[in-house]
Design a protein around this nucleic acid. Structure first.
Length: 805
DNA sequence: GCGAGCAGCGTACCT
DNA sequence: ACAGGTACGCTGCTCGCG
């Protein structure tokens, strides 16, 4: 075997005769899975001596720390030079035998100098220093040493991975199953060339079910299946926290031979930061839940509740079988064959949904992996800051720049306690308007950061005069001669995305090539939008308060100037938020808007651009509660194709009941499509009557809220907290930090007293849903048409709206 | 002792 | 565990009134 090209999938830390190395899990282009070992990178960190370099070097070389395993010493000490804040600095590079020696030796050297790059995990260090980008192609030599990475950053190819989605059902008589007591009942699986359900002891007639004698045999069969299918990618939905550790715990209890890893290892569940990650040796565990949760957080997708059911429905438009989770144990104990079949079908259904979701997001994840250089397993669980940091870590190495240290907890607190001034938001006038043009600045913050070279390494440089440098509105100076790492990297991200976009225009939308490029540009968009946040993220290594202040100050300046220009051009500026403006224009005046846009772009810096988002024949802004001026961040628009864009209204919030959201949506649609009340009043009246008659289904009254703190730590007993406390008293298990659904019932005096978790609610308080949900949601919309609450209640035919009052 | 008014808590949204 | 800006419901307190 000479040289070999293979995709690098994962790297683990490993030890051989007291020396750190990595174990690489790779996949050849022909689809063969292989492992390689590389011990050629010594763990290291830097010390910037406070005193004399040579003296400190001699001191470091003599260093020896006694531990129970013998003396820990540096393997070697070298001199090094790195760039730091635009200047070259001399450093000592302390090379170690083992990664674990780094934290020991650095503590001994803390007193003689400033430490750098001492907290970068060894495998990460390895991938950066060896210039290897997972999940890309690399060239490997026969002896197992990796010599070069051959996938360019614009890599085209992806490894072909054999996938298998897995989903379990468990016995749960007390609500939440306990692995020490409650068995795993079924394992559903769905892969490229196999799907079905493994269960045990019961009789099934569903032909996809294979029933083993015991739970132990069932669990062992799953491992056999993965081996037989040569699965590379095990897909789950929250398998990090639930399915994988649960199966492993059951297997341990039952003494099953349970080795899901390709290297016959067990599931390894470890806390990583705030969450648990479950890994499988030699196979990639790809958990779709953190992916969905990340995309929902950054606003790429909008799903109010991240259950597999809801996400599948929202993202892929698929309907899934529904089973009452709390009744699974009953079905198991007493169910007929037909009922057990249904449970199995549901279980398989979950696995299929999981596989489809896994596939749907896989291209994005692979592209992100190649872009930032993190393995798929890490990238799929990464936060926005980790993606940015990973990219910057690589760029810093290429620029021979010292990586800034993580902030201390005092620094973090200081940063958190001192937020900067952010974006400008204009108060809109409440009302219904016709002919609205929405314009926005394309990638406003990124383009400002690039255009003005905003970075922690360029702020307040001493090489530029006041005239040469970029000076922000509040006087922060940024170097104009030496490009900062953030503007440079961000510039690359934006350029790359621009190139892809123009390439995509030449392709047919349903070609595989288009889809591949689309996933890549999506990844680049996510990255571009994450840099500004990272600049001001309290735990950021490249934090820059002045950089953040300058970015928002310039943004405010640009939007204010543009508003003034629009007004001078004769448009009424209805609304503006951060980078967008809403202009009212005369009927048929679309060309005037285009001319205005051009006049703005003519004088903007090269990187910046004002774009037309769309023309809207009608739109509505509502008044603030108890006030006549318009509310910010709440509006609805309808475009020429009849498509409605809604922002901020109760109907987009999960902490409003469906009955209120639904009614508000209907009223809004009537208003936008017809511009009048008529039908809307009728609809509201009917809804109120239904509520009073008790004919509204209870599920339409459920309000969802996440408890973001521990239940015991609340100062105020809000309805959701009271509902959970009540539920726990009656033995219902509700996990901390979960999204709870509750209903306001008739049982109690205050709203909190009346609140019950959805599972326990048996009735609803019609008055509450009329007065506190439906009416507040619709009255403001009706108010936008000139009706205030009083006139609706007292005048003419509108009286009937509240007829039964 | 009681209701009105208000501040502050807390969540979810927008860009 | 990405930023700041914003709306708004609800609780629980204060205050004025009697």
């Amino acid at each position: 075997m000479g040289k070999l090209k293979a995709f690098i999938l994962e790297a683990d830390h490993t030890l051989r005769s007291g020396q750190s190395g990595v174990r690489l899990f790779v996949k050849t282009q022909r689809g063969k899975s292989l492992r390689f070992y590389d011990f050629s990178l010594e763990p290291y960190f830097f010390v910037k001596p406070r005193g004399d370099l040579d003296k400190t070097k001699a001191q470091a070389e003599k260093l020896s720390v006694y531990s129970q395993h013998g003396a820990i010493k540096p393997k070697r000490v070298e001199e090094a030079e790195k760039n730091w804040r635009g200047k070259k600095v001399r450093l000592l590079k302390i090379l170690c035998f083992k990664a674990n020696d780094v934290p020991v030796l650095r503590e001994e050297l803390r007193s003689v100098g400033e430490l750098f790059e001492h907290d970068i995990p060894y495998t990460r260090r390895y991938l950066v220093d060896k210039r290897i980008t997972p999940t890309g192609l690399a060239q490997i030599e026969a002896n197992g040493l990796l010599i070069e990475n051959i996938s360019s950053i614009a890599s085209e190819k992806n490894p072909s991975l054999r996938k298998m989605a897995v989903d379990i059902e468990t016995y749960n008589p007390s609500g939440i199953p306990d692995a020490l007591r409650d068995p795993c009942l079924m394992v559903g699986f769905a892969g490229d060339s196999a799907d079905g359900v493994f269960s045990y002891s019961k009789k099934f007639s569903f032909d996809k079910v294979k029933a083993f004698k015991t739970e132990k045999e069932m669990l062992e069969a799953i491992c056999g299946l993965l081996r037989e299918q040569q699965t590379d990618l095990v897909c789950t939905y929250n398998g990090d926290v639930f399915d994988l550790p649960y199966m492993q715990a059951r297997a341990k209890k039952l003494g099953a031979d349970f080795r899901m890893g390709r290297d016959d290892s067990a599931v390894r569940s470890k806390r990583q930061g705030l969450r648990v990650v479950s890994r499988l040796g030699g196979r990639l565990h790809y958990d779709v839940f953190p992916v969905v949760s990340f995309l929902n957080f950054i606003g790429t997708i909008r799903v109010p509740r991240l259950t597999l059911e809801k996400v599948y429905e929202e993202i892929l438009g698929g309907k899934k079988l529904d089973v009452k989770k709390l009744d699974i144990w009953k079905t198991w104990d007493e169910g007929t064959t037909k009922e057990l079949d249904f449970l199995a079908e549901y279980c398989l259904n979950d696995a299929v949904a999981c596989l489809r979701l896994a596939n749907h997001f896989l291209h994005l994840q692979l592209e992100l992996s190649k872009l930032v250089g993190l393995p798929l397993v890490e990238v799929s669980r990464a936060t926005a800051s980790q993606l940015v940091e990973s990219l910057l870590l690589r760029r810093a190495f290429e620029r021979n720049e010292l990586v800034p240290n993580k902030p201390s907890s005092e620094e973090i607190r200081g940063r958190e306690e001192n937020p900067i001034q952010g974006a400008f938001v204009k108060t809109p006038p409440a009302g219904v308007y016709e002919n609205i043009a929405v314009l926005d600045f394309k990638s406003l913050y990124p383009s400002i950061i690039i255009s003005h070279n905003i970075d922690v390494t360029t702020v307040g440089c001493d090489c530029c005069s006041e005239k040469e440098a970029f000076v922000s509105p509040q006087g922060h100076k940024f170097c104009a001669k030496r490009k900062g790492i953030i503007p440079e990297t961000l510039g690359f991200v934006l350029d790359e995305r621009f190139k892809l976009k123009s390439e995509m225009k030449k392709l047919s939308k349903d070609s595989a090539e288009y889809k591949a490029l689309d996933a890549r540009q999506w990844g680049l968009k996510i990255l571009a939008n994450s840099f500004y946040g990272y600049l001001l993220y309290a735990r950021s290594r490249w934090y820059s308060r002045k950089g953040g202040e300058a970015t928002t100050a310039w943004a405010r300046q640009y939007i204010h100037e543009t508003i003034a220009k629009a007004e001078n051009a004769g448009f009424r500026v209805l609304y503006a938020d951060t980078d967008s403006l809403f202009l009212e224009y005369p009927k048929g005046g679309e060309e005037k808007i285009n001319a205005f846009k051009k006049s703005v772009n003519d004088v903007l810096p090269e990187r910046m651009e004002l774009e037309l988002e769309d023309f809207y024949p009608r739109g509505v802004f509502v008044a603030k509660k108890q006030e006549s001026r318009g509310a910010k961040k709440k509006y609805a628009l309808i475009n020429k194709e009849g498509k409605i864009k809604i922002r901020g209204f109760e109907l987009v919030r999960r902490d409003w009941s469906r009955i209120a959201r639904h009614t508000q949506r209907e009223v809004l649609e009537i208003l936008l499509k017809e511009g009048s009340l008529g039908k809307a009043v009728e609809l509201v009246r009917k809804t109120i009557a239904d509520l009073k008659a008790g004919s509204v289904p209870l599920e339409d009254c459920v309000i969802y809220t996440q408890l973001r703190k521990k239940v015991g730590s609340y100062e105020i007993q809000s309805p959701e907290v009271a509902a959970v406390i009540h539920a726990r008293k009656s033995g219902l298990k509700i996990p901390e930090n979960s999204v709870v659904g509750y209903v306001i019932t008739r049982d109690g005096r205050s709203i909190s007293e009346k609140a019950r978790v959805a599972e326990q609610a048996e009735n609803y308080d019609a008055d509450y849903y009329v007065n506190n949900q439906v009416l507040p949601a619709v009255l403001k919309l009706l108010g936008a048409l000139g009706f205030d609450e009083e006139s609706i209640k007292t005048k003419g035919s509108q009286t009937s709206l509240l007829g039964s009052w």
